[in-house]
Design a protein around this nucleic acid. Structure first.
Lengths: 237, 237
DNA sequence: CGTTCTCTTGAGATCCCTCAACACCTGTGG
DNA sequence: CCACAGGTGTTGAGGGATCTCAAGAGAACG
């Protein structure tokens, strides 16, 4: 129902100041300088825990935050990886629905809840920008449902690599060489697999000639077309 | 970040007219009478298809709409079941991201896109109500990620039954007897299982004494506590 | 140059899927 | 009233993808 970013800038120019360029993924919170504090997190440090009372919404500036939920016996499902520009904590009510942990050294902007509420009341375009952003995240999460529910391990990993490639490269679409800021363990908990299966699947994609494993957690996408076929379940591998 | 319905009605009373009572699940679109048309769908009829240009947002009045995505080879993942009051099509941009099919005889309200956009511009509270609704749906979808990624078949079905029980009963929370408006096939495609596994799992829950299978697609929840334990992975069954 | 953490690889176990048969229900038509 | 067909749900037997357990290989770091 939401128009594209460029269209909505015509239709409702109120939204424009809050969206960075044509990129729906980025809500521009630079305006709210008055009440924003930056916070630095080191590897494995938590930004918040599931069930705790919510105090802030966060926007990632640098690094990656993993958003996850846990079952009683320790099984974990990572729901999302928040990259720079991403906003965390928009879908909770009163309490955080999930925990947020820094995968590596990370910087976030902390926006107090009342600042968000104030902005929503005073700036009509702001709420719309948040709606646009949240709707986009919902679409993304539904895509992930398909992976978890119906794709094989190979298809899941291929989908994941394409997703990372889109996210991490920023401007250059489908970069040939992508860096993977998460460990096997975190990929496994995102894809609903075990680390062993993730590892084996990386090996499988490598021996198919689709990717190359480079040092420093980097991956080269050798055959992007084939990777997309696999990701969409159109490959008879 | 979003305050509870009741709080936000104080904080921002603009939202109030658009939310039914305390129920975040229901956005009140009764105001937009001018441009709303009701449409009736029979069993298996489609409301829209994935990839088609979006023309409307829909609110279910009666019946249930299944929202699904398909892979090339026919594998299907149902992302959501839209019950009366639910809104469908808020997270798409230009084109529908998924298909919508009526599970049974269904009535929906059709709201043209431009009506939504107009309302968002003229009524500040409306956009906020939609944000609240969308955020709620996102939280719901993330919960489903945990099921698909990390739960066993039994845990998935238990989670599903509780979800249905909460949704369908409306006022009476955790009704003892719930009616399941979807076939085994649709439950399977929602939970990432096969119909056979769903059927076997129903039988297993029945022989554990947790549920009873009644005629007319009804299920009695005999031991709600145990069902919740199973759903949360705390059961050693 | 050990220690620690992460990743890879192997072998066997397990959960769920696939294939197949059967049961049940409903409506239709002889 | 019975026979039959089609849709839906249940149950069984065997197979396969992924998990579990276990060991070893690299990489990072003091």
């Amino acid at each position: 129902m939401l128009t594209t970013a460029s269209t909505s800038m015509n239709a409702s120019s109120l939204v424009a100041p809050w969206i960075s360029g044509d990129n729906i993924d980025h809500v521009n919170l630079g305006h709210t300088v008055s009440c924003m504090v930056e916070r630095t997190l080191s590897e494995h440090e938590h930004l918040f825990f599931e069930g705790k009372r919510q105090t802030h919404v966060y926007q990632v500036v640098e690094g990656v935050i993993g958003i996850y939920k846990m079952l009683a016996d320790g099984r974990r499902q990572i729901c999302n990886f928040a990259y720079p520009g991403d906003i965390v904590g928009l879908d909770t009510i009163g309490k955080y629905n999930y925990s947020g942990e820094a995968l590596n050294d990370t910087v976030v902007r902390c926006i107090p809840l009342n600042a968000i509420e104030k902005l929503m009341r005073s700036e009509p375009g702001f709420g719309q920008a948040l709606l646009l952003y949240t709707a986009n995240e919902l679409a993304d999460t539904r895509e992930q449902l398909v992976s978890l529910g119906r794709k094989t391990a190979t298809e899941k990993l291929a989908t994941f690599l394409l997703r990372i490639s889109r996210r991490s490269s920023g401007l250059e679409n489908h970069a040939q060489v992508i860096s993977i800021p998460m460990r096997r363990c975190e990929i496994a908990d995102f894809l609903g697999l075990t680390i062993e299966t993730v590892s084996r699947t990386f090996t499988r994609l490598k021996s198919c000639g689709v990717i190359k494993l480079l040092p420093n957690t980097q991956v080269a996408i050798v055959d992007g077309k084939k990777l997309e076929c696999i990701a969409n379940g159109q490959s008879m591998v």
